[in-house]
Design a protein around this nucleic acid. Structure first.
Length: 1017
RNA sequence: GGCCCUGUGGCGGAAUUGGCAGACGCAGCGGACUUAAAAUCCGCGGCCGCGUAAGCGGUGUGUGGGUUCAAGUCCCACCGGGGCCA
């Protein structure tokens, strides 16, 4: 078969652009590779325009094959930044592309979508810098990203593409938020339920409720929701002021406030991190060392009404269900540490003092066994108790201290060596000893952890001890730790035996008990006394979901004149982001969302805004919420939308969601060869924990920088949707994989300062010197950065070698999960491999295919082994070794320099087709081109993964090592089936072994058939 | 400070279950082809010592111990690099 036979598209015979005297116009050069790739990509565009291409139909759609198993493979969608793709993007995308192409050849229905995470701070900041509307810059960046990704030839189903900024998408983001707004977490069933069910129960049972002010309600219920997981369910945390009333006796307003205290999306007054420069509030996790993660601007703390998500309700389940997913252990550990479950006790201390009466101070401690050692208490400067003391005329030093401490970052507060604080003038009563102990405020206690107050046990806590020393507060040892002498000079921490811990008056006696027993005794005593009990505390805080920015999803909420909030009806969505001439944030010391500037939009009526008339008459004047959602919002559920991206009736079509997200657990036996048997079992129709996989997406690949936040938020949304019956699996991502960071090189002077890569010259022998000074520098691995001038632009690399080479290079660099340095010099290696592979099949002078007439038995065997090895390696994401195997095959089959003599080396037509199929997932363009020249029309995507004969994987003979005392002394070739006794006899008789054997017979001979022999003397 | 990951030639890495360390690639060296160069093809290659050579001996996976017939792999301690929580 010659190339001329299928030169129908007029391109196949086009010589590589190498000039007139070129003798090898069909050589696989970079221009030839680029031309070939672009030709195949143009064809793909045509096919896509005609409804084909790599489109994957859904169940019920034309062309859908129900007999095939499904595989949903997802990349973390990118922020389309103005800078375009960096080399890190195609790393994960190539990996998933290889797996998807492989799975397709193995007979799977493959969902492999791509889209854009286009809202959020970076897009807005970029727009602000360039002075162009974010929508314009974002869409331009998307177009550029799409162009770049298409140039890599990824097998995405582009018909499913969307961006989070599309109104058709964020309409449903708002819809999900409304679901959360209209839901509460029922601690009895540990699941979300519609809030209408809570309301119905309150009405029918006419329950007694504690009516509260709007401000305290939200935080109060939030605390009780997490407290509900402990046995201390009745205990209120902090100082709550409320009146108990029957539901029927409550006003409409009181009922509303009460219900608001349960919503999963609620309005709470929070001490927030206000970044004046960015004009927005930031989540704790967006702040590093007291400055904004993005931009490094200072952040101050102030109270603000914000929309929150009650993610703490899900702390237990978010923790427990980590066991159900195939995620890297490191990621699961990070999430569980982020959730930070700790078991301890809540203890309520009575407070009395000049200004405050009948109050109590609640603390959380992991060491209730040390209660007798609590010689003073400390509350955070932000604690509500302090505010009240100040309001009732507390002394000036206290006021001053609170003002000073308020803006110190959490890090500063915890790390500063010198402890600061002032006495509040109040006293609390230690319930165990009956002693009056002073209440201090100090910034080393944070409002964000526990209750914002601690009982200080200076004898056994380092920080409490330092504080007690600083202010001459009493220290009492209550734990005797074996092997650690008590000197009074330093705190002793750890477990031991309780001492000085008995009081007949209070009835608590723990002396002699182990720490574990003492904890139990203390908790039992607290419960009996009704002043506390077992409590599970979480580090996890509720999720601050409001941002004072323009470029985000508007909240579907309006406020009446009194400031009461009302949801926009689901049927009135989307609440479209209004056009705004000046969208810049308002840089100020007080929060002012930019959307407030769109007065025509913000000031409207309930009817125009789409509020249910049953909630508020249509002509009521209302003001829209001007905060927007954070960048995380759109990425919390995009994987669901891909299942049915155009659905206008629902956020996801239930049948499509079920098909792509729900799957059976893999049977224990099924290793690798799973295509045929998986299809024979009918797809499940509903989730069953015993037989179904908890996670939906079969493989999710992305960077580990998203190990906590994005993945925790997405899991939270998914669990809400699961509870409310909107999705069919309890977890969003069944299997997760993090690709490693691609780093680069930089050079370091003797004084450890860095030198940009282009200011260094190599002088051979691995010696490098700085051009300007001649100083010797050493090569180190560093992150790619503009300042080090070591950023690699994928477009440049493709122009120089082609996309197939780029893909191959990134996969060949090393293990996918490892962080690896980019080394441009190494790219030539995989490029040469593709050249050799090409030359194996194609005459470089004529473009005709070159096939061996007769199959070489050795090559045939190696081909089978390569097919087996590459298939296994793809399944375990070991692409570097798969490529090495292909290189070995091609090297073995490569002819000597006379490349026209088809009788020497090479592969037969049939072998070349099979090889092209194996190469296709990695380097699809060259493989498709080879395939076509070999007579497979229209590309290889319809081909099956080639079969291998297991018999071909075994040799009849094997060479094994013979060791004497663990040292290799000889190698013998034995039949694979040889018995241990036969091998032993051969080994002992070997001439190279004999001299090493002593006079006496060997003590022992270890024979591992097929591996080695070890003779022990 | 605690937990986790990691350390293999000049470089990237391989060794999937404790079983021949260094696959494959880069860089390097030698040869063939060529007027020459590039390209291509063939070959060499951890380090040290001996040998003209094929080869032989020793040593070798951050350091020091241990388990084992056998350790890059398992255990303990330490050192360096990275991450997470403090």
């Amino acid at each position: 078969m010659s190339a001329a036979n299928h030169a129908t598209d007029g391109h196949a015979r086009t010589p590589g652009p190498q000039g007139g005297a070129n003798e090898t116009p069909f050589r696989y050069t970079a221009p030839f590779a680029n031309a070939t790739e672009e030709r195949w990509q143009a064809r793909l565009e045509q096919a896509e325009a005609a409804g084909g291409g790599y489109r994957q139909p859904n169940p019920g759609e034309p062309g859908f094959d129900a007999s095939r198993p499904k595989f949903y493979c997802l990349d973390m969608f990118p922020y389309p930044s103005g800078a375009g793709l960096h080399v890190g993007h195609p790393e994960g995308y190539t990996a998933t592309d290889i797996i998807c192409r492989f799975k397709k050849m193995k007979g799977f229905n493959v969902l492999h979508p791509m889209g854009w995470d286009a809202f959020g701070l970076p897009a807005e900041q970029y727009a602000i810098q360039t002075g162009v509307h974010p929508e314009v810059t974002t869409k331009k960046a998307i177009d550029n990203f799409r162009r770049q990704l298409k140039r890599f030839g990824f097998m995405y189903d582009w018909s499913r593409e969307f961006a989070t900024i599309d109104p058709d998408y964020y309409k449903w983001t708002q819809w999900i938020w409304l679901l959360a707004y209209n839901a509460w977490f029922d601690p009895k069933v540990k699941a979300a339920r519609p809030i209408s069910e809570l309301e119905a129960a309150l009405v029918s049972e006419d329950r007694e409720i504690t009516a509260m002010s709007a401000d305290s309600a939200a935080s109060g219920a939030a605390s009780s929701a997490s407290g509900a997981t402990s046995s201390a369910s009745g205990a209120r945390v902090g100082v709550g002021v409320g009146v108990t009333k029957r539901w029927s006796a409550c006003t409409k307003r009181e009922r509303q406030v009460y219900l608001d205290g349960f919503r999963l999306a609620y309005l709470g007054t929070q001490t927030v991190n206000w970044c004046a420069k960015l004009g927005t509030v930031l989540a704790n996790e967006e702040i590093i060392d007291g400055r904004s993660e993005r931009g490094g601007h200072p952040v101050v703390r102030m109270p603000l009404k914000q929309w929150m998500f009650r993610i703490t309700s899900y702390a237990d389940r978010l923790l427990a269900d980590l066991a159900l997913v195939e995620w890297p252990d490191s990621t699961r550990t990070m999430q569980s540490e982020w959730i930070g479950r700790s078991e301890g006790a809540e203890i309520r201390f009575e407070v009395d003092g000049a200004h405050v009466e009948n109050e109590f101070l609640s603390v959380f401690t992991t060491r209730p066994d040390t209660l007798f050692g609590a010689t003073y208490m400390v509350v955070a400067p932000e604690h509500s108790l302090i505010a009240r003391v100040v309001a009732r005329g507390g002394d000036a030093r206290l006021t001053e201290y609170v003002a000073w401490a308020k803006n110190r970052s959490d890090i500063d507060r915890q790390e500063s060596k010198k402890k600061t604080g002032v006495s509040t003038g109040l006293f609390a009563v230690n319930p165990a000893t009956g002693a009056r102990i002073p209440v201090w405020t100090a910034d080393y206690v944070l409002m964000g952890y526990g209750t914002g107050a601690i009982m200080a046990v200076p004898a056994h806590d380092e920080r409490d001890f330092e504080f007690a020393k600083e202010f001459a507060l009493p220290v009492l040892q209550v734990v005797d730790i074996a092997g650690v002498a008590w000197t009074g000079e330093t705190a002793t921490s750890g477990e031991g035996r309780a001492i000085n811990s008995a009081n007949t008056a209070s009835g608590l006696s723990m002396n002699g008990m182990s720490t574990a027993d003492a904890k139990r005794a203390a908790i039992a005593w607290l419960e009996a006394k009704g002043i506390g009990g077992l409590r599970i505390n979480y580090r996890l805080r509720d999720w601050l979901f409001s941002r004072q920015r323009y470029w985000g999803e508007p909240f579907p909420v309006v406020y009446d004149a009194e400031g009461n909030h009302y949801p926009v009806s689901m049927t009135a969505l989307p609440v479209a982001l209004p056009p705004l001439a000046d969208y810049r944030p308002i840089e100020s010391s007080t929060p002012q969302p930019p959307l407030a500037k769109a007065r025509d939009w913000t000031h409207t009526t309930a009817g125009a805004a789409g509020v249910d008339p049953a909630l508020l008459p249509a002509d009521t004047a209302v003001v829209r919420e001007t905060n927007t959602m954070p960048g995380w919002a759109g990425s919390c559920w995009y994987y669901l939308r891909y299942c049915s991206p155009k659905d206008a009736q629902a956020f996801v079509d239930p049948a499509a969601e079920r098909y792509w997200m729900l799957s059976r657990k893999k049977s224990a036996k099924g290793t690798g060869e799973s295509s045929a048997d998986a299809a024979s079992v009918a797809a499940p129709t509903s989730y069953d924990a015993a037989t179904c996989h908890a996670g939906g997406v079969d493989l999710y690949v992305g960077g580990s920088e998203h190990a906590v936040l994005h993945l925790l938020y997405a899991r939270f949304w998914h669990k809400m949707l699961f509870d409310l019956g909107k999705v069919s699996t309890p977890e969003p991502m069944g299997k997760l994989f993090h690709q490693g960071l691609i780093t680069s090189h930089a050079y370091q002077r003797a004084d450890r300062t860095l030198v940009p890569i282009d200011e260094v010259e190599e002088r051979g022998e691995g010696q490098c010197v700085e051009k300007a000074t001649g100083e010797q520098v050493t090569q180190i691995v560093a992150k790619m950065s503009k300042s080090l001038r070591n950023v690699v632009n994928p477009d440049d690399v493709i122009a120089e070698y082609g996309a197939d080479t780029f893909r191959l290079y990134e996969m060949y660099m090393g293990p996918l999960e490892a962080s690896k340095p980019w080394n441009t010099r190494d790219i030539i290696g995989v490029f040469r491999f593709l050249q050799r592979a090409w030359r194996l099949a194609v005459d470089e002078r004529t473009g005709d295919v070159l096939c061996a007439a007769v199959a070489d038995a050795t090559i045939e065997k190696q081909l089978h082994r390569t097919i087996a090895k590459v298939g296994e390696d793809i399944e375990r994401l070991s692409f570097n070794t798969a490529i090495a195997a292909m290189i070995e095959l091609v090297n073995a089959a490569t002819r000597p320099s006379d490349m026209t003599d088809a009788t020497k080396g090479g592969m037969t037509h049939d072998q070349l087709v099979r090889f092209a199929c194996v190469l296709w997932p990695f380097a699809p363009h060259i493989a498709d081109e080879l395939g076509e020249r070999l007579g497979v029309a229209g590309g290889l995507h319809g081909m099956q993964w080639p079969a291998f004969d297991p018999a071909m994987l075994v040799d009849s003979e094997v060479e094994i090592a013979v060791q004497v005392q663990g040292k290799v002394r000889a190698r013998i070739t034995v039949p694979t089936a040889a018995s241990a006794a036969e091998i032993e006899a051969m080994a002992l008789a070997h001439p190279q072994v004999l001299p090493h054997l002593g006079e006496k017979p060997p003590k022992k001979v270890v024979v591992v058939p097929g591996r080695m022999v070890n003779i022990v003397l």
